[in-house]
């Protein structure tokens, strides 16, 4: 048996100590300069809202019991809820944020229902056009996230990896996903400079939107255009989706958990269109009745109605804590009544 001829180090030659010291020094100086450059331009460290990060938080929900709570839904609830304010107001543990922007909460709710160790409180945010999407495309994308999470959960070092990623992501501005090479190239092709985005995600997966730097009207128009292209489901599909939500809620409640349905504020042209396409009495009321238990619709509470949604859909980061406290008080009352 013979040793292979390969890429033997002895053929390369040194001096390796000097080579590596200079390489590390050059890299450190260059990265330091790049970090200062982006910070001077207003960029901050930001976490990537990746499947790994989501999976880590989903893992925390395993074995959770009341009053521990989990939030599922889409972007509205991810931007609107200040997790610390929720915990402070209710006296409950800090909730786990599992909402995913643009994806249906249904597969996540089903996943929690299938997890026999989960006995916590689930806050299900209902955005009609997402939960009741006729093509169920948003549902498939959420199901994919659940599947990815199950695959990642097999790996014993996922938690450690997510911790490292969050640490690096929240330390260095140059790791901000907004500064990825493809995005910078796309901006330069459009003749634009990279500017700090008004939206970002934190390591607890709460999202923030700073509307002082947003073209609110433009954003609202974007939501309106998107809504206009989406088909409304027929009654059969509506009933099917409602049936699935109810079955999952029943399974969670049977183990001592609870499910609270929540409808967050909308406003302006987008609000009008949503109410027109998804009339409350045809969608929300039927869902709330069929699922049973606590259900909070913003229209029923003056203190929720008064919170502004500058783009017709989302709460500003500056209002999130106040809004959360109000909503938390209501949820705590409603959940207590249901026990």
């Amino acid at each position: 048996m013979t040793v292979p001829s390969s890429i033997s180090s002895s053929e390369v030659g040194g001096p390796w100590g000097r080579t590596w010291i200079l390489a590390i020094a050059l890299a450190a100086v260059a990265l330091g300069a790049i970090e200062l450059h982006w910070r001077a331009r207003g960029f901050k460290p930001a976490v990537s809202d990746s499947a790994r990060l989501w999976s880590t938080h989903r893992h925390r929900a395993h074995g959770l019991e009341r009053p521990g709570s989990v939030i599922v839904g889409a972007s509205r609830v991810q931007y609107a809820i200040d997790l610390d304010a929720f915990a402070d107001e209710t006296g409950w543990p800090v909730p786990i944020q599992l909402a995913i922007q643009g994806r249906s909460p249904l597969p996540i709710l089903n996943d929690l229902a299938e997890d026999s160790s989960f006995k916590g409180l689930v806050i299900v945010e209902v955005t009609d056009r997402i939960l009741f999407q006729a093509s169920r495309q948003r549902e498939r994308r959420a199901r994919l996230r659940v599947a990815e999470s199950r695959e990642l959960a097999v790996n014993q070092t996922e938690g450690l990896e997510a911790w490292f990623e969050a640490l690096v992501g929240s330390t260095f501005a140059f790791r901000n996903p907004e500064l990825s090479p493809d995005r910078l190239l796309a901006l330069s092709q459009a003749g634009l400079r990279a500017t700090p985005r008004e939206r970002w995600v934190e390591s607890d997966r709460s999202a923030k939107m700073d509307f002082s730097r947003v073209n609110e009207a433009g954003l609202e128009q974007r939501w309106v255009r998107r809504l206009a292209t989406e088909k409304r489901p027929g009654l059969r599909l509506r009933n099917e989706i409602i049936g699935e939500v109810a079955a999952s809620a029943e399974a969670i409640r049977a183990r001592g958990g609870e499910v609270v349905l929540v409808k967050l504020p909308n406003s302006g042209r987008l609000g009008e269109m949503e109410n027109e396409r998804f009339p409350r009495e045809v969608f929300w009321d039927v869902l709330a009745e069929r699922v049973g238990g606590p259900a909070v619709h913003f229209e029923d509470y003056e203190e929720l109605r008064s919170i502004p949604t500058p783009d017709g859909s989302h709460v500003d980061a500056a209002d999130a804590a106040e809004f959360t406290r109000t909503l938390a008080r209501i949820i705590k009352q409603r959940a207590a009544v249901s026990r």
């Binding site: 080579t19 390489a23 990265l31 790049i34 990815e148 790791r175 996903p177 990825s180």
Partner: peptide, 22 residues
């Protein structure tokens, strides 16, 4: 040796500037 340092530094900078994914 210093040429290798420059190449290694360039590769490490590119790796560090590329946001991670799953």
């Amino acid at each position: 040796w210093w040429g290798r340092s420059v190449v290694l530094a360039a590769l490490m900078i590119a790796i560090a500037l590329t946001p991670g994914n799953d």
